[in-house]
Design a protein around this nucleic acid. Structure first.
Length: 481
RNA sequence: CGGGGCGUGGCGCAGUCCGGUAGCGCGUCCGCUUUGGGAGCGGAAGGCCCCCGGUUCGAAUCCGGGCGCCCCGACCA
């Protein structure tokens, strides 16, 4: 019995995370170091994420396209900061067809360079703008240390790339996407985030500025869940993406790029998972409801399985994602454990007693089990799913707030909070990069972001928590993944 | 790249100190009985003991050298 469980979070959070992924069959290690196989249960969650995000991108005027995996090595070098940022983690192809290549090909770590090289051909006039492209793709970054979903050598993501006629338009796009990410994370993933600006040391290599979504995991480490970059004219200049303005002039376009990855699955796990396994918010669950018929005799089997299938059809008609587990030879209890481990939000048990009473036994993944009438069951289930979705979000917000510290009174309190694995600390910052580096060296915490207005503290910090000098901004610190 | 752990049927492990020809649990397959919180009994299949070399009559075990994986740190979505 014990060996069937997973390591409790309190005992070893990393082990819990790995155990959960294996138990829920979300992913597996690949023969290649640092790479992962995303199994059907895990990929189904990613597909739900893709669908929701893809819809939101398209609703805001973005189109999908696909750019190649291979990038001429010289492209990466064209933007100074970009090459500096990515050079250490590039995978490079030197041979093809048995011969050494004239110019090595880089396996894309991100696609700015190849995309702007194409934008240069496609954009001639202000009439071609804005150009708003998204692609769903895999990218490769040679990481020193990897973790399933959170950091793997190859990962899946979407990367949006847009070109605009003005800096203001590019900034508006950057913030529009940040808002979409926020809505997705809050409303679909039930994962609260703090949005804000990255400091220069943490921004994307080649960006003017980077905004990010920062979530707090159950071990009180921060997870950067998504980023949206205003690239200014940096890449436009490097790849000569110019257009004729309305008044006949010539200007470089203003561009943005933004992305979220399969890392979000890791965020989902570490936001909602418990010691029994995965907990999946209803809106992202592959199966929102699993129906488990219970029988003894053959007649009972026919009756309960038949009822399960009819119930499944009824719920499906109400747009509820439902499956019936009619496997024979496995006891109901074993099925309960299996579906719980996978995080299925609701379970409906149908046995002879339920058939007689006109009810089904409803069990929630988040706790609680009671009989509900079959009459109007689709409405009941819909309400249960909506309630659970909201409850997961509320619980995650409450946990984050309980583990956040606003306005530490002293440097000592600040350090002490971070050292006992506290969560987010909001404090004043003088803006000096050297101070930021010193804090990182001493506390292992980094500035996750300079929070946007709505996340800032009511009481504005006036002094830098580290130097005591006047604060120029409020920053959120935490140890991070 | 440093520190720690580990490599033995599909999975998890014991056996290694003290050499003697491989075992346990889970899973799998077959049969019967079971089925409202991880089923029981009977039968069966399944192992280059990470790799290479050495010592020895004999190596999973001892010695030397490799390789790989996981965890913790330095870099990063």
């Amino acid at each position: 019995m014990a060996e069937k469980g997973i390591t409790p979070r309190a005992e070893d959070f990393s082990a819990w995370y790995n155990d959960l992924i294996m138990r829920a069959e979300l992913a597996d290690y690949s023969p290649v170091r640092g790479c992962m196989v995303i199994r059907p249960n895990g990929y189904a969650i990613w597909e739900q994420m893709q669908q929701a995000l893809d819809r939101m991108f398209k609703e805001t005027g973005h189109e999908n396209a696909y750019f190649p995996l291979f990038i001429p090595q010289g492209f990466i070098a064209r933007e100074a900061e970009h090459v500096e940022g990515f050079a250490p983690e590039l995978a490079v192809v030197t041979h093809g067809g048995g011969k050494e290549l004239e110019e090595p090909l880089v396996v894309r770590p991100t696609s700015e360079t190849i995309i702007y090289s194409m934008f240069g051909k496609w954009i001639q006039s202000w009439r071609d703008l804005p150009l708003k492209i998204n692609q769903w793709a895999n990218v490769v970054r040679w990481e020193m240390r990897t973790r399933l979903f959170l950091r793997t050598t190859e990962f899946l993501w979407q990367e949006g790339h847009t070109a605009h006629a003005s800096e203001a338009d590019a900034e508006a796009e950057t913030l529009l996407i940040l808002g979409i990410y926020r809505r997705f994370m809050e409303e679909w993933m039930a994962m609260p985030i703090v949005t804000g600006l990255k400091t220069p040391s943490e921004k994307f290599a080649g960006a003017l500025r980077t905004y990010s979504c920062e979530a707090l995991m159950q071990d009180n480490k921060a997870l950067q869940a998504g980023t949206s970059h205003n690239l200014g004219q940096n890449f436009a200049k490097a790849f000569e993406v110019q257009y004729q303005t309305k008044d006949g002039g010539l200007d470089h376009v203003w561009s943005t790029s933004w992305g979220v990855s399969t890392r979000l699955v890791g965020g989902l796990i570490m936001t909602h998972g418990d010691d029994k396994g995965m907990v999946c918010p209803p809106r992202l669950a592959q199966w929102q409801v699993v129906i488990i018929p219970i029988w003894r005799s053959d007649e009972e089997r026919e009756a309960t399985c038949g009822a399960a299938e009819r119930l499944a059809a009824e719920l499906r008609a109400a747009d509820i994602r439902v499956t019936a587990d009619t496997r024979e030879g496995i006891k109901p209890g074993a099925k309960y454990f299996e579906w719980e481990g996978r995080g299925t939000p609701l379970r409906l048990e149908i046995g002879p007693r339920d058939l007689a009473a006109g009810t089904a036994m409803l069990a929630r993944r988040t706790g609680g089990k009671e009989p509900i009438p079959m009459e109007g069951i689709a409405t009941t289930i819909r309400r249960e799913l909506d309630t659970m979705q909201q409850a997961l979000f509320d619980a995650a917000v409450a946990r984050r707030e309980a583990n956040s510290l606003r306005g530490p009174k002293s440097k000592e309190e600040f350090i002490e909070f971070l050292q006992r694995d506290g969560g987010f600390v909001y404090a004043g910052f003088c803006g000096e990069p050297a101070v930021e580096a010193e804090i990182k060296a001493q506390t292992k915490a980094t500035i996750r972001c300079l929070p946007m207005e709505e996340f800032r503290s009511a009481e504005r910090p006036t002094t830098c928590i580290w130097t005591g000098k006047p604060a120029t901004v409020e920053a959120v610190w935490a140890r991070a993944y």
